[in-house]
Nucleic acid binder design. Structure first.
Lengths: 340, 340
DNA sequence: AGTAAAATCGAAATCGTTTTCGGTAAAATC
DNA sequence: GATTTTACCGAAAACGATTTCGATTTTACT
């Protein structure tokens, strides 16, 4: 019942463990005869190398760590989808952890992954992460690290992102071109760079098209939720009747706004245009369907993994690694919540 | 730069590796003096035990494997959410793999996890899995296995499920009680037990309420998609005008139907009542909001993990394990797509 | 036949930790 | 003072695979 080991094969064949090992790894100094004998017996016994022993010897686990803020999230689950699929094809397994937007948990999880000696770490920062010491530790330990989506510019590692500012610009421009004259913004939390950049893009577009920026119609979503979208839509409807366009930080927020306006009978997009962000599946099936910015989650996961594997390989060879930042394109998805 | 080992600590302190190891594990036969000396130095050097070596010695990896059909899926991502969160708290890490509904991939992934020597496996079967040899192999290898949601009754292991038949009954009954007289069913694929049971529950409810079962208004969704819901709704609308209720195998299918009827101006729930299954978030935000059956994903993940950890512990002790099947309750969520 | 080259094998060290089992020294007991 | 107990420590053997390096055998070549 115990697992088959090299030793057992060696004994059964009357040869040494060394030769068995070499035969299985197709070394040149093993005769074809013994080679086939070993291979046949190994197959017959269904030999599987003990990966604990292999890990110890080779000092690599063929495992990578992945930390994301939350998994029940259309964008992130798409990223995860790409990563685990591609990783498996390259012979890597993925350990997934979620930080739940907590810096403290993030710290612990980094320590966990480091102690498990994963070959590399892929990660999207929590919104509340301010101190970056735990990430610097990863870099100091010489463990390859690739950040995606929620990144920090202060970290010296490879990154995969979208251009949030230009995406925010595009979203706002789309509303303007579809006839909106006074555009509100339901922005994200104040800390994350992505949220800041989308806001900056929004502002820039207003400037370029000579629309007055008005901070009283910029609302901050702390949790980026349906309810906040609903709540701020109500605020717009009661206190800012002249607003005729909304750029929401996320589809979920946008859908909250759509739900409110549907409820009170405000016509979308006739009376008010709405655009979201991310292109969740959900956005395509509500009515009216929500215009949005497509954020390529699958591509991002794929690219991040590719970069990480490259760095793992380089590190193993002892080569100096060249960090790079990849910017993935986004595009405007026009649907029925904007009247283009 | 190299990692700190017991040996280094031992040398620096002029004692043996054995004593260092024992000191850190708080053995009784180490004097308090050397104990504190070791602990202090270990902390100072930030010693982390090499988990490869620990794994090899203890023959356990403190890692479990999780295989699901797909991760970009509200129900499954909720299950995953629960599992990785609870596992982390219990000192276990989770390796996630997705079978993409392919039996072949599932086989490979089981082999992978087995070769990585995970301490246990959690899994939801692919819809296309017919041969169960790979799962029997897991059991033969004495690796604890817990199946959830998509299970097979032929496998001798613990299981966590919902009562699909009674849930299907409840859904259908709810339509009947809200006034529907002719109820169609958009069922799932023919193979998976869950899909069969929901259909059986549907049939039973019709019988109990003296409604005629009519196989011409039972449609089979192969991929359980939005498009299928849309397509079959159209079919109902054009070929079965007298149908006034639909029980959809999943919210996604239900939402497809809602979208179609919205488009052609059929009033929900006045002209037709619709109920879905799973209680995706999406179902609550479309209009009209979709009545559904709540399928407790988080609970299921939590319970499955708990069972698995219990079996892992028992196996380690060499105890005989008592397999059990847990049935989690579902409930009807009444919303605006049914006129109760 | 004698030597050089090639082919084939295995002993042993190593990875870092855990744990058993003896051994020595100090303290307690008679 | 002799003996037993207790406290403390370390050598060594695992765990299973990999790899270096030397040894032996066989073949090839003068």
């Amino acid at each position: 019942m115990g697992e088959v080991t090299l030793k057992q094969i060696a004994e059964e064949l009357g040869i040494s463990v060394t030769t068995v090992s070499k035969a299985l790894k197709n070394y040149a100094d093993v005769s074809p005869k013994t080679k086939t004998a070993v291979i046949n017996l190994a197959n017959k016994l269904n030999y599987q190398p003990n990966s604990f022993a292999v890990n110890l010897r080779t000092k690599e686990s063929k495992t990578i760590g992945l930390i994301i803020p939350e998994i029940v999230h259309h964008f992130f689950s798409n990223v995860v989808n790409a990563i685990i699929e591609k990783a498996e094809k390259k012979g890597y397994l993925v350990i997934i952890l979620q930080s739940n937007e907590s810096e403290e948990l993030e710290k612990k999880q980094i320590d966990l992954l480091l102690s498990k000696r994963v070959d590399g770490i892929l990660m999207s920062l929590s919104n509340n992460t301010k101190n970056l010491d735990h990430l610097k530790k990863v870099i100091e330990h010489n463990v390859p690290l690739v950040l995606f989506d929620k990144i920090s510019k202060l970290l010296d590692c490879s990154k995969v992102v979208i251009d949030d500012k230009s995406a925010g610009y595009d979203a706002t421009e789309h509303l303007i071109k579809s006839g909106c004259k006074k555009i509100a913004h339901f922005r994200g939390p104040l800390n994350p760079q992505g949220s800041i950049d989308r806001f900056l893009g929004y502002k820039k577009a207003l400037e370029d098209y000579n629309l007055k920026f008005d901070s009283s119609i910029v609302f901050t979503c702390e949790k980026v939720s349906f309810n906040e979208g609903y709540k701020f839509a109500k605020k717009i409807h009661t206190e800012h009747k002249d607003v005729d366009g909304i750029f929401a930080i996320t589809d979920l927020v946008g859908i909250g706004a759509v739900a409110y306006f549907n409820e009170v009978g405000v016509k979308i997009p006739k009376q008010i245009g709405i655009i979201g962000f991310s292109n969740w599946f959900m956005a395509s099936v509500i009515s009216p369907s929500l215009s949005t910015i497509d954020q390529p989650g699958f591509e991002m996961g794929k690219k991040s993994l590719k970069l990480l594997l490259k760095e793992i390989k380089a590190t193993k060879k002892g080569n100096q690694i060249q960090h790079q930042t990849v910017v993935l394109p986004t595009k405007v998805i026009k649907r029925n919540s904007t009247a283009f």
